[in-house]
Design a protein around this nucleic acid. Sequence first.
DNA 1: GGACAGAAAATAATCGATTATTTATCGAAT
DNA 2: ATTCGATAAATAATCGATTATTTTCTGTCC
Lengths: 240, 240
Amino acid sequence: MTQTTRRAASPAASGKRMLSEQIYAYLRDAIMRGTYAPGEALKPQDLAKEQGVSLAVVREALVRVAGEGLADRLPNRGFAVPAYSDRRWQEIAEARRTIEPVVLRMSVERGDIDWEARVRAAHHRLSRTPAYGPEEPEAGVYYSAAWSEAHRVFHRTLLEGCGNPVLLETFDRMWTASELARRWSAHRDPGRAGADEHRRLEEAAVARDADAAAEVLSQHLTQTAAALTDDPAEGPVAGG
Amino acid sequence: MTQTTRRAASPAASGKRMLSEQIYAYLRDAIMRGTYAPGEALKPQDLAKEQGVSLAVVREALVRVAGEGLADRLPNRGFAVPAYSDRRWQEIAEARRTIEPVVLRMSVERGDIDWEARVRAAHHRLSRTPAYGPEEPEAGVYYSAAWSEAHRVFHRTLLEGCGNPVLLETFDRMWTASELARRWSAHRDPGRAGADEHRRLEEAAVARDADAAAEVLSQHLTQTAAALTDDPAEGPVAGG
DNA sequence: GGACAGAAAATAATCGATTATTTATCGAAT
DNA sequence: ATTCGATAAATAATCGATTATTTTCTGTCC
């Protein structure tokens, strides 16, 4: 609490030294990592004591988290980790299948050399990052944090050629929802990632084959969804 | 302040009697209506005194509003009405052109009879609602609140046949951003609405002509963007 | 006359405590 | 034994005040 002129307590905290920001980041990360079970109540008092801050900052962080869809809010009943149904996950997956191929097509048509280079770099990093790090095998954690981030960056980079921040914000939102829902999906598949599809995505992108890229992405997303809904043996695809 | 057991102060306030909710609704409406100039600071103290509540509730409302993109937030510098550039508006318009026709196609292919009926109802209401009500001619207000709402409902209803809440949330978000950016766009066009295009949209939808519907919507959005960027004389289209 | 340092004012961020609502507990009546 | 109702505990929502940061207003020095 008494943060009298505390400077850069968190690592690499250059510009933002706002207490609520830290708590927000903590909550977001904790929920995404599966620290709290779905449906579990997020009690401001417990969090405040646990994090050593006042109720106000916890509350502000919770409001932000809820605004992003990472927490449900019931009037006079507080906040809770959202309990995504399989149906919900399918809706998110369908939304991604609907939007991302179109954006990817735009990206391939517009992206410049720098974009191509970044796609190559992102794919390289993804392909060389082990999906399962030597991390502690907590419940609900299926991929290393490094791989999850590399995965996200690759998919985002693919779309960044479109040059439209609004569309990229839409991607970010859906990716977050997708990752959260996937974590708690009933039929989650801890199988290996779709490395081959990622490779084909990269190739189609730098080859400027918009149709092929869009098609591969569409299949990739479809298989991902199928792998989580049906029997895992059917589609050994895990990536998003 | 002293809200000792205040019951249903606001009209039709049945379920939600949360102070922060009211302030949130007020702020959202005020910003969308253009009550505050773009770039203007939203000072919690002033708002708190003005609305008769404490800082905490104003702060919570501001955090929510900022999360929706209806306010900018600068660390240690408070909140402010976002100052959208024309470039920003074009990005939003492009995002809508990219996504909405695809969703409309899906909607036309999936919508049931009930959806058809609601499309007809929404269009009827829109076509019979005067765009310019006898409201006080405040600065920045170009359409009556009733018409704006009917307009939004019509466009949303067109897409609701898709049956995917995630895609509809995306629409809601973009519509909000679009309306806000349009209000403060440099080249705003107070001309009459694209009533004819709305009629053609309705026809194509209930006729189950997905291609035509998507094409008309794409043109509609393109013309709307063009009308605000170029000389207003070029494209006398105002609707979204 | 302009730039700079320092004090003063304004505003943002945070805190501790109060009030209101919901949830849990317990006992009486059927 | 179960349901209903009142009380007690827990938790959410709100408030008033405190602390920290930024901005504004000086007056001085060059």
